[in-house]
Design a binder for these strands. Structure first.
Length: 241
DNA sequence: GAATCAGCCCAGAGACTCTC
DNA sequence: GAGAGTCTCTGGGCTGATTC
């Protein structure tokens, strides 16, 4: 494995302007911290420790959330786009054994018996014209998505897309706004195409897996709905604010 | 009747282009 | 390079149709 991790230029320009000369950064994960050296928009010395401790492999998907002062909260997803759990790391923190047990129980039940929440939506003329995708309100409420926030969508090719979830104060409608345009273009989505969005991560930044489940004539047979299902794929690196 | 959703419309911010 | 004008994108208010 090549023990370097580069920081996207756009993020570097937008968020780290005043800290170009900082040579150290802190990565936080599961209550533990790793000190890494940063040079030329890359994490270098120390990154290998982080990668080793998290057993990172090619195709793994990392979300970096910038907390200021060169501190990044990191969440790791595997090649199936499911969030990785690190019980051993957790035990090294101040988490109680009880909390860990609950976490393990949740992880086990999620991967084996429970299915990920999802909804299916037909792309209407309006959604194509204004490039937004409505999220069913019941789905939004039941998954704590009835709020304005940033989100990440991972498509079937494993590409990741930033988008924003907006809550209309006027009527409570929730939709995916900014960023949906690029997703439509990048995935060749068109009028009457049908997509399934599976919620695979529901933290401060929700993460969806995007499936194109039908197109054109087939789409009419599929009403907008939501429920649960399993299965996903993909992997890349994202850096968030 | 209330809740939900799709559609229409408008305003503001930022990006882009053109001219000087 | 700076400034002005135009265009594009995005967010949000409002309304009507549909569903529960």
């Amino acid at each position: 494995m090549h023990y370097l991790q580069s920081i996207p230029l756009s993020f570097f320009k937008d968020y780290l302007k005043g800290q170009i000369n900082c040579e150290s950064a802190v990565l936080r994960s599961y209550g533990r911290t790793w000190s890494v050296k940063s040079r030329d928009r890359r994490f270098e010395d120390g990154w290998q420790d982080f990668a080793r401790d998290h057993d990172l492999h090619v195709g793994d998907f990392l979300v970096f959330r910038y907390g200021g002062n060169m501190v990044f909260d990191v969440v790791v997803f595997d090649t199936s786009a499911c969030q990785r759990q690190y019980p051993l790391l957790a035990t090294q923190t101040q988490q109680t054994a009880k909390e860990i047990g609950k976490q393990h129980e949740k992880r086990t039940s999620t991967s084996v018996t429970l299915e990920s929440p999802h909804f299916v939506s037909n792309l209407t003329l309006e959604s194509m014209k204004s490039f937004r995708l409505n999220i069913p309100r019941k789905f939004a409420r039941s998954n704590d998505l009835d709020r304005s926030c940033e989100t990440v969508l991972v498509d079937e090719q494993g590409r990741s897309w930033m988008a924003s979830i907006r809550l209309k104060d006027s009527d409570g409608q929730v939709y995916i706004g900014r960023g949906w345009r690029n997703i439509c273009i990048g995935n060749s989505l068109g009028l009457k195409d049908c997509v399934k969005l599976e919620l695979i991560g529901n933290g401060i930044t929700p993460i969806f897996k995007l499936y194109k489940v039908a197109s054109n004539s087939d789409a009419k047979k599929l009403p907008n709905c939501f429920g649960s299902n399993a299965g996903c794929s993909g992997g890349s690196t994202i850096i968030l604010e």
